[in-house]
Design a protein around this nucleic acid. Structure first.
Lengths: 330, 330
DNA sequence: TTGTACGCGTTATCAA
DNA sequence: TTGATAACGCGTACAA
């Protein structure tokens, strides 16, 4: 293994000079800079980040935590876009990312979580898909042991930021658009997410706001982001409502299949804008989020926190649109 | 930050004794062991893996490299299962995983790749979705600078293993089953993957073998794993063939949609067993692979290589089955 | 502008 | 069975 000492010898300078050159310090003559770089090239020297981290007592390791269930799921698209956006930005910002999946962290207390992340030498966290039942995580965030960015949960503080679209406004907007697009909408069935989801409340509130503003009745039921439950609830209630609003695309699909079974027509809209929508032969309006970009901002935000700045709220854009098979198949 | 020295002081022993206790060395009395553990608990000491790695001159960092294109894709399911399986096993085997996505590595020479991975302090690699055009990677593997496990490409050597199902046999099996299940199959359209894919050749060979053995003509066309191309090729050729065999589920779906457009019936089969199949109202037989398990074996294999053992071939099981909406929606 | 020397937290060697 | 001490490779005061 070639070390900084080897480079220094080869270049005929001291080790600290080499270090200064490599870390772009000022007050180094161009001549010595050139000598050092030549030696680096010649020896194919690669700095030892381990030793560097130990010496400088700082590293830029960020844990990206994904809350997932351990079954196969069609909506992996979202997490994959999150992950891709994160890795992409991390490279630009010279952050080292450690990917963590929630099933490997089950049943840990906040103290155990802290120890675990410390042993991983993490300096900060980015959390995707957090929900209210994750008490240990909420505690950990509250204790502010690590700078943390939360995606899709309105939690922030001195060392914590969140990044998300304005779910309440988005849900409000799409409900209004659905009401305006179709005639004679007197009431609608609202398929909410899971009770312990942070965005569930926000979206539900948006739907209620729209219901009030437009003078259209709302029948809200929790379908737990589940296709099956959305299906069953639709079977039960849809006949007496003139429209179905789902808080996720997957639930919208479940609802559409139920409507087919009932052999009645009701306009249906979803939320998220996943590719799967293109495979359904039914036009579903949805709130399209740019997950890649959302995640990019989350990483930029964690970089901000790491440089000592204070936590804040970051709101992202969304678009209301349909997704068809032709959009997907390009 | 609490260090090993603090623990040593607290326990009234030397630092090396603490180190021995923590690393389960022999020749330590139960009494001192207890003293040390008590101090560890009390101080909430977490070992510094950075310092440990520097001192012991060894770490167990493995890069998991995913070849993906940077567009949204429905088949993220596969990579997600790979990643999940990998992280899961890595934890058990105490390996540290570094997730790498191919778009962040574009246009690098094998030498640049080597430097990049060295700077990441990787000791080994696991590669998913490699194809023949990735010359730099193939070179790097060939140079044996890093122990490497390749998923789904039949490459192995002193320091390289591969893990995959027997694609040739699987393709052979499913073609035979399709021929036996349906009557009067005289010829079939075979939708192959991309020319530069490693598994493409294997699967194609399996299809040809079946064609010969069963005395059924084969019309093989490259559809590049693309739904669109599969669609177009089906439109062009399917009328004169009595069956369609696709080398991926996505291509099978494209083909099914084309057959609908042509308004003719032909049995169609796919390959992989992705969840998306359940959303198509058409019964498609497929080769179901367990991607999670495949990835688990890949990580176990890299652990083997890391402990100095020699590269080998690892073949996994598969099942021939259909996937329906009911299977998915549980 | 350059180089010397110490410290980062741990492991490993070897003497006690 | 224990403990002092020299590495490990790099960053950085501080001296030159």
């Amino acid at each position: 293994m070639v070390t900084i000492t080897d480079v220094a010898k080869k270049a005929g300078v001291g080790v600290s000079t080499v270090s200064k050159v490599l870390n772009n310090y000022e007050h180094v003559s161009d001549k010595t800079k050139a000598k050092v770089m030549a030696a680096v090239e010649e020896l194919n020297y690669v700095p030892n980040s381990i030793a560097s981290a130990l010496s400088s007592k700082q590293s830029r390791r960020v844990g990206v935590v994904f809350f997932i269930n351990n079954q196969r799921q069609t909506i992996d698209e979202i997490n994959m876009q999150y992950l891709f956006g994160a890795l992409n930005t991390a490279k630009e910002l010279r952050l080292e990312l450690v990917t963590v999946f929630s099933p490997n962290l089950e049943n840990m207390t906040s103290h155990e979580l802290e120890r675990h992340f410390l042993s991983l030498r993490l300096n900060a966290l980015v959390i995707y898909g957090l929900h209210k039942e994750e008490k240990s995580f909420l505690e950990l965030i509250d204790q502010e042991k690590f700078p943390t960015v939360i995606v899709d949960a309105p939690i922030y503080g001195e060392k914590a930021s969140y990044v998300m679209v304005d779910h309440q406004k988005a849900q409000y907007d799409i409900v209004c658009e659905m009401i305006d697009q179709h005639e004679n909408i007197e009431s609608f069935l609202y398929l909410a997410g899971r009770r312990d989801g942070f965005v569930t409340d926000l979206r539900l509130q948006g739907a209620v706001d729209a219901s009030v503003d437009r003078g259209v009745k709302i029948n809200a039921q929790y379908a737990n982001f589940s296709e099956t439950e959305a299906n069953q609830i639709t079977l039960k209630y849809a006949e007496h409502e003139s429209m179905v609003v789902a808080a996720s695309d997957l639930m919208a699909i479940g609802s559409v299949n139920a409507l087919k079974e009932l052999d009645i027509f009701r306009p249906v809209c979803g939320f998220d804008g996943i590719t799967l929508l293109g495979y359904i032969d039914y036009r579903i309006l949805t709130v399209r989020q740019n997950f890649f970009d959302l995640s990019r901002h989350a990483i930029q935000e964690v970089d901000r926190l790491l440089s000592g700045e204070v936590g804040r709220e970051v709101l992202m854009n969304y678009e209301i649109q349909t997704i068809s098979y032709d959009d997907i198949i390009n």
